[in-house]
């Protein structure tokens, strides 16, 4: 049972009265998905209906306008599986900056001539982890088997589940659509995107990110950035700075893996 707030997914599902989605689907206001799904889950519980409330929402609908509701659903441990597909900007409205847009990236509201976005990307998955949600994971569209396993695992767990899914946007990031999987894979291979999961108190890295814990195994960040027009204006100094930021993120994740490892 799917709830979708305003997003690209509102469009790609197809035009009414028909639908391209083979499951029950409720379109809902931008900021409301986590709360609507909570209501659906509670109704199913009271009515004795066997079914799962699932949210499929973008980064703007989750990390920005819908964040209060997402945080509250996690704090209540509402029985909702929440998938945030992250294309790092408001793509449906035409590429505007969100809190998930990475530093220095061009968007229509962070022009390249002014240096792109000035601020860091918000690490929503770690924030959800800090809520004490029973299951939190990151995923990436280039690794569908990992995503499939995570969705299946999340569906077994009662309570709030959060999956942060990395999803490149060809027009928004300025690359040819044929490179979508390549861009997503490079994000992992350069260490920019880290696959991990927190399940029942245990935090662990997932392959193939596991090997990139060793910095020497990571590919240079430039290989990821150069595929995308949104980073075309970056200087070597800025790229070096972003690599340092990636090192810091790895440091945090490895510490968590150590602290909450088996």
């Amino acid at each position: 049972m799917l709830s979708i707030p305003a997003s690209c997914a509102s469009v790609v599902q197809g035009l009414g009265p028909k639908s391209g989605i083979g499951m029950p689907l409720l379109n809902v206001p931008f900021a409301s998905a986590a709360s609507v799904a909570t209501g659906i889950a509670e109704a199913f519980k009271q009515l004795g209906v066997k079914g799962r409330a699932v949210v499929w929402a973008g980064d703007g609908g989750t990390a920005d306008i819908g964040f209060a509701a997402v945080s509250a659903a996690a704090e209540r441990n509402s029985d909702v599986l929440y998938v945030m597909y992250d294309n790092e900007a408001y793509m449906n409205t035409g590429i505007q900056r969100s809190s998930e847009t990475p530093k220095y990236a061009w968007t229509t509201t962070t022009p390249a001539y002014a240096g792109g976005k000035k601020e860091q990307k918000k690490d929503v998955a770690l924030i959800m982890l800090a809520h004490g949600a029973p299951y939190v994971a990151t995923a990436n569209i280039a690794y569908p088997q990992d995503l499939y396993r995570k969705l299946k695992r999340a569906a077994e767990i009662e309570g709030f589940k959060f999956i942060h899914l990395f999803a490149p946007c060809p027009p928004g990031w300025s690359f040819d659509p044929s490179l979508t999987v390549e861009v997503a894979r490079k994000a992992v291979e350069t260490g920019y995107w880290i696959l991990w999961e927190y399940d029942d108190g245990v935090f662990k890295l997932n392959p193939p990110s596991t090997i990139y814990a060793d910095k020497s195994k990571r590919r240079p960040l430039k290989e990821y950035l150069k595929l995308q027009g949104r980073f075309a204006h970056l200087t070597d100094e800025q790229i070096a700075e972003l690599e340092k930021e990636i090192d810091k993120r790895w440091d945090t994740v490895l510490k968590l893996a150590k602290a909450f490892g088996k």
Binding site: V11, G16, S19, P24
Partner: peptide
Amino acid sequence: LRPGLPLTFGNI
């Protein structure tokens, strides 16, 4: 809204 009943509400 029921599992197994693929109705869509509120799409464009």
